[in-house]
Amino acid sequence: MTLSTNFKEALANAGTFTSGDQTVAAASGPKRLECRLIALEPLACSLTELVLRADSLSAMAPEGLANVAEALAARLTYLLEPISPIETDAEGCTVQMRSNPPQKDADRTSYYELLVSRAGELSLCRYTRAAKSQRQRVPFQVTREVLLRLAGDFDAVVD
C-alpha cells in the first residue's frame, strides 16, 4: 500500500463535517502525511496545512532539498497560483517556496507557502495579508481530487 492509497482511505473514513479541526493522517513506512482540515464535504474540503514527514528529507544536502523544491514546482501546476522556490536558507537547510506571483486583490495579498526542510518536512499552507496588518495563515479550499493529487505529488518527490 502506498502513502497515497492509505491517505485516500483515511480521507474516505473521515466522513464529512463542516466545522471543527480534524487531522487526517496516513503513513507508509518512514513517511507520514498529515492534513489538518476544518471542513470536509463530499466534493471538496478546507484545510489549513498539509505536511509530509519523511526520513529521506533529513538525509538530504541543501542541493537535494533544492532538487525536491524544483520537482514540486514542476508538479504543482494545478493550484490557484504556480509555486516556485524563493529563498534557500543554507544555514537552516530549508527551501522556501511561494506562489509566484502571489494573488493580489484590492485589499489583500494571498499566497501559498511551501517549506522543504531538512528537519524532514514538506509543509504547505496559505497566507493572506490585508493592508497595514500582519500576515495570517488562512484555510484554503481544494476538491478531494486535488487533495489526493497533492498527496501523490508530495509522496513522489521524496522517493
Binding site: R98, P101, P102, T109, Y111, Y127, R129, Q134, R135
Partner: peptide
C-alpha cells in the same frame, strides 16, 4: 515585498 510578508519591523 510582493507578499507583504515582512514582519521584522513589527
Amino acid at each position: 515585498s510582493p507578499y507583504g510578508s515582512g514582519e521584522y519591523i513589527r
